[in-house]
C-alpha cells in the first residue's frame, strides 16, 4: 500500500468536511485495503469512522433498531456478523440475515459493515488489476468481455460485465420501499448537515451505461448512514457458490412475498451476481402474483421468467441454469417462512 495519512474525526460534520475524492471514509476497511493493496485505489487520507458519535435526532449509525411501525433501522456501521445474528433482523426481514450470514468469512463478517458491503467495488479480476485497461477505472474498453468472464454478468453486460458483489444489496432491493439514508454537508453559507433518503430500487444503483466509474449514487462528500427496511418476514436470500467456504456468489436471489391467506398477493424478486447492479425481476414476480403459496408450478414459472432476456457471454451460459435454480430455491425458502 502507498502511504496515507489518517484522520480521526469525532463528529459526522468533521467527517463530511474531510471527505473528498482522495480522502475516503474507512469503516471495516476490507474492500478499501484490498483495493489499496492492489494499487487500484490510492487514497491520500483515510477518514476513520469508528470514533464518530451517534447523532442526536437522526437515524443511528450503529445498531439495529425497530422503529414505530415495525420497520428496521440498521446503522451503516453495523457489522455483517451483527446483522446475521440479530433476532430483530431474523424476525422482520430474514432475507437480510441470510445475506449477511452468507457473506465472506467469519473473520470478515466480524469487521465488515453494512455500509461497506453495499458500497464495495466489483470483484472483477480485470477491474482489480491496474495493469488492465478497464472502463470502471476510466479506461476505454472491457477486457473481460473478450477475456475470462466465467463468473460475470449475464444481464446488462454490453458495456461492462462485472457483477455487483454485494449480497446485502440484493436482499435489500427485494424489500418493498427499502431505503438508505445518506448524510452530507449542505453546500452554501450555513454548511449544515443534510440527510437524504433514497430508495434502493429508485436510483441508488448506477449502471455502467450511465456511469461506469461508480456503482452507487453516493457523492464523494457524502456518507452512507443507515438503511430502513419495512417488515418483510416472508423473505429469503439464497446464493449458489462453487466453493462453500468463502466464495463469491455465482448467482443469488432474494425473494419477498406478501402473503394473504394461502395466496401470494404480491412478490418482489431481486437477482444478484448476474448483472452490474442488483436487478428486480418483474417477470418473475408477476409469475407468482395471485398464485397459491405452494403452487410449485408457479415457482417454476417464476424461476424461468427470471432468466428472460439474459444475454450470456461465451463462457458463462451456465449461470442461466443456476439462476433458474437459485430463484426457485429462494421462493421455496421464503414460502417456508410463512406460517
Amino acid at each position: 500500500m502507498k502511504p496515507f495519512s489518517y484522520a480521526r474525526p469525532t463528529t459526522a460534520a468533521d467527517v463530511l468536511k474531510l471527505l473528498s475524492p482522495t480522502a475516503r471514509p474507512k469503516a471495516g476497511g476490507n474492500d478499501l485495503l484490498d483495493l489499496a493493496k492492489r494499487g487500484v485505489s490510492t487514497p491520500a487520507t483515510l477518514v476513520d469512522l469508528s470514533r464518530i458519535s451517534v447523532q442526536e435526532g437522526g437515524p443511528r449509525f450503529d445498531g439495529v433498531t425497530v422503529a414505530e411501525g415495525g420497520q428496521l433501522e440498521i446503522g451503516a456501521r453495523v457489522t455483517l456478523a451483527q446483522i446475521a445474528a440479530s433476532a430483530d433482523v431474523l424476525r422482520i426481514f430474514p432475507a437480510l440475515a441470510d445475506a449477511a450470514a452468507a457473506a465472506a468469512t467469519p473473520q470478515i463478517r466480524n469487521v465488515a459493515t453494512l455500509g461497506g458491503n453495499l458500497l464495495q467495488r466489483p470483484r472483477c479480476a480485470y477491474f482489480r488489476d491496474p495493469f488492465f485497461d478497464c472502463l470502471k477505472r476510466g479506461g476505454t474498453s472491457c477486457p473481460a468481455r473478450d477475456g475470462v468472464h466465467d463468473e460475470m454478468a449475464i444481464f446488462g453486460n454490453a458495456k461492462c460485465c462485472a457483477t455487483h458483489p454485494s449480497n446485502l444489496a440484493t436482499a435489500l432491493l427485494a424489500a418493498p420501499q427499502a431505503g438508505l439514508a445518506t448524510i452530507t454537508v449542505e453546500i452554501g453559507a450555513k454548511g449544515g448537515l443534510v440527510w437524504r433518503t433514497v430508495e434502493l430500487s429508485d436510483g441508488f444503483f448506477v449502471r455502467p451505461e450511465d456511469d461506469p466509474l461508480i456503482e452507487a449514487a453516493i457523492a464523494p462528500g457524502e456518507l452512507l448512514w443507515a438503511a430502513f427496511v419495512p417488515a418483510a418476514p416472508v423473505s429469503a436470500y439464497v446464493e449458489i457458490n462453487q466453493k462453500q467456504s468463502y466464495d463469491w456468489a455465482s448467482v443469488a436471489c432474494a425473494v419477498v412475498l406478501d402473503v394473504e391467506g394461502d395466496k401470494i398477493a404480491d412478490a418482489r424478486i431481486a437477482l444478484g451476481a448476474v448483472a452490474p447492479v442488483p436487478l428486480l425481476s418483474e417477470p418473475a414476480a408477476a409469475a407468482l402474483r395471485g398464485k397459491g403459496l405452494r403452487d410449485t408450478a408457479a415457482w417454476d414459472a417464476a424461476a424461468a421468467a427470471a432468466t428472460q432476456g439474459a444475454t450470456p457471454l461465451a463462457r458463462n451460459g451456465h449461470k442461466v441454469r443456476q439462476l433458474r435454480a437459485v430463484v426457485r430455491r429462494a421462493i421455496e425458502a421464503a414460502v417456508a417462512r410463512s406460517k
Binding site: 496515507f4 480521526r8 474525526p9 463528529t11 433501522e73
Partner: peptide, 26 residues
C-alpha cells in the same frame, strides 16, 4: 415516521459549531 422523517433535516446547529481541529496522523 421512519425514514421520511429524516429526509431533508438539516442539523445546522451541530455542523456550524467550529469543530476542534481534527487530528490527522501520518
Amino acid at each position: 415516521t421512519g425514514p421520511v422523517g429524516f429526509a431533508g433535516i438539516a442539523m445546522a446547529a451541530k455542523a456550524d459549531e467550529e469543530a476542534a481541529a481534527v487530528p490527522v496522523l501520518g
